[in-house]
Computed example of a mutant assay.
Amino acid sequence: MNGSARRSGMGLVLALLVASSIGLTGCWDRQEVNDLALVMGAGLDLSEDNKLELSVQIFVAKQAGDQQGSAGGGSGMSSGTAKEQTTVYTATGDTIADAATKLQELLPRKVFWGHGEVFVFGEQLAKHGITDQTDFLMRHPGPRLGAFVFVSKGKAKDVMARPSQLERNISEGLREMAKSQTGLRVNVKELMQMLKSDAGAEALPLVSINKRNPESNQSPFISGTAVLKDGKMVGQIDEYTTRGIMWLRNSVKESVITFKPAGSNGFVSAHLNRSKVRLIPSIRGDEWSIRVQISSEANLIQNESGLDPLEPRQANRIQEGLNDEVSDRIESALAEAQRKMDADIFGFSDTFRRSYPKQWERVKKNWSEKFPQVRVDVSSDVRLKRPGFSGK
């Protein structure tokens, strides 16, 4: 009887455990995709009354018709094509969090930031300062640290409302342009690291819309670099000089350079790969200097110069012209950022800090004054490895 009672008691306990576990199955906090407003990208602008204007591109399951709405300083508009399947909503507030709260009032679905690909700061907001706004991107659990960051010429809202010619929407288009590294590539995490660094300067890719025909449906494109100091935009650098910035930041792995060799009548285009850059700092007394050593291999992909790359002397002229072109781009970047803007967007401060920690501690508070005085020596060693068939 005791054994039978014991087995009955154990069976009752097991039955109770099974019954109680039924209520624990499933996801109590699950969120269905159909209940979410998926943010693909966001534009941040400074409104006329110095408020924060937030424009988000929302993905919808099917083409939405023209939608209009307003609540708490917000509005919505369709992106306009069935291909994109996105709608842009705008709300205004004192901060991003405030604007996001008012944005939620416009939508029947819960705003979800986890799919965000890009964040675009408008030009006026960038000049006013972006440090306070990036605080939201780091503290809020929704935005992805790997999302790419841009500055737009004009309003970021106009960029978010544009279509993409090849991708489903402009957020995906900007993401792919960032990955292709035609310009600088910066994500949220890297931006925060720059804002907190001792250099006190930041560089972000600059996005433009066709100025000649602003009403056209041309996709926005990367047109250079926005330079910021202490989170405030102080200048712009064009596409040509941006390549020099990328060399100095060691972010060029391969590229195509077109130039005219000295004494020739035409252009030469070469594809550079296996590119590496070394920054070698030196301190001698009060003189601080950095030696920039560039190494790369080049494949000749077009030759209109009349020079024969299979003839050693003429091949050397092509190679010398190639090295001069790389050095010129770097010198152009230094002239803009170091001598005109006093902005260390190259990471020289980190280079000195690692190699000379004691000396760095003495100057880091006055780095903005020391940086323009740093002498930079550029040495380019690009070698023509594959001249190709000359056709002669």
Rank of each mutant, 00 (worst) to 15 (best):
Met1Gln: 11
Asn2Met: 12
Arg6His: 09
Arg6Ser: 11
Ser8Phe: 14
Ala15Pro: 06
Val18Trp: 06
Val18Ala: 14
Ala19Asn: 08
Ser20Asp: 07
Gly23Ser: 13
Gly26Thr: 07
Arg30Lys: 12
Glu32His: 11
Leu36Ser: 09
Leu36Val: 13
Leu38Thr: 10
Val39Gly: 05
Val39His: 02
Gly41Thr: 11
Leu44His: 00
Asp49Ser: 12
Asn50Val: 10
Lys51Gly: 06
Glu53Lys: 12
Val56His: 01
Gln57Arg: 11
Val60Ala: 08
Ala61Cys: 01
Gln63Ile: 05
Gln63Cys: 01
Ala64Pro: 10
Gln67Ala: 12
Gln68Phe: 15
Thr81His: 15
Thr92His: 05
Thr92Trp: 07
Thr95Ser: 11
Ile96Arg: 09
Ile96Ala: 09
Thr101Cys: 09
Thr101Pro: 02
Lys102Ser: 14
Glu105Tyr: 15
Pro108Gln: 15
His115Ile: 06
Gly122Asn: 06
Glu123Gly: 04
Glu123Ala: 01
Lys127Leu: 05
Lys127Thr: 10
Thr134Trp: 02
Asp135Val: 12
Leu137Lys: 03
Met138Pro: 00
His140Glu: 07
His140Gln: 08
Pro143Val: 08
Pro143Gly: 03
Gly146Ile: 14
Phe148Tyr: 13
Ser152Glu: 06
Lys157Gly: 00
Met160Asp: 00
Ala161Arg: 12
Asn169His: 10
Leu174Gly: 01
Lys179Leu: 15
Val188Glu: 01
Val188Ile: 13
Glu190Gln: 15
Leu191Thr: 15
Leu191Ala: 13
Ala201Thr: 07
Ala201Leu: 05
Val207Gln: 02
Val207Thr: 05
Asn213His: 12
Asn217Leu: 13
Asn217Phe: 11
Asn217Lys: 14
Asn217Glu: 15
Gln218Glu: 15
Pro220Phe: 07
Pro220Ser: 04
Ala226Glu: 06
Val227Gln: 02
Lys229Gly: 09
Asp230Lys: 11
Arg243Tyr: 09
Met246Arg: 13
Leu248Lys: 05
Leu248Thr: 04
Val252Ile: 14
Ile257Thr: 10
Ile257Trp: 07
Phe259Lys: 04
Val268His: 03
Ala270Asp: 00
His271Phe: 09
Leu272Trp: 10
Asn273Trp: 03
Arg278Phe: 05
Ile280Met: 03
Ser282Gln: 14
Glu287Leu: 14
Glu297Trp: 00
Ala298Ser: 01
Gln302Thr: 14
Ser305Asp: 01
Leu307Gly: 02
Leu307Asp: 03
Asp308Leu: 01
Asp308Thr: 03
Pro309Cys: 01
Pro312Ser: 05
Ile318Trp: 00
Glu320Gln: 11
Asn323Lys: 00
Asp324Tyr: 02
Glu325Leu: 02
Val326Trp: 00
Ser327Pro: 00
Ser332Tyr: 02
Ala335Phe: 01
Gln338Met: 09
Arg339Ser: 10
Ala343Gln: 02
Phe346Met: 07
Ser349Trp: 08
Arg362Ser: 14
Val374Trp: 08
Ser380Gln: 07
Arg383Ile: 15
Arg383Asn: 12
Leu384Ser: 01
Arg386Ser: 12
Ser390Leu: 05
Lys392Arg: 13
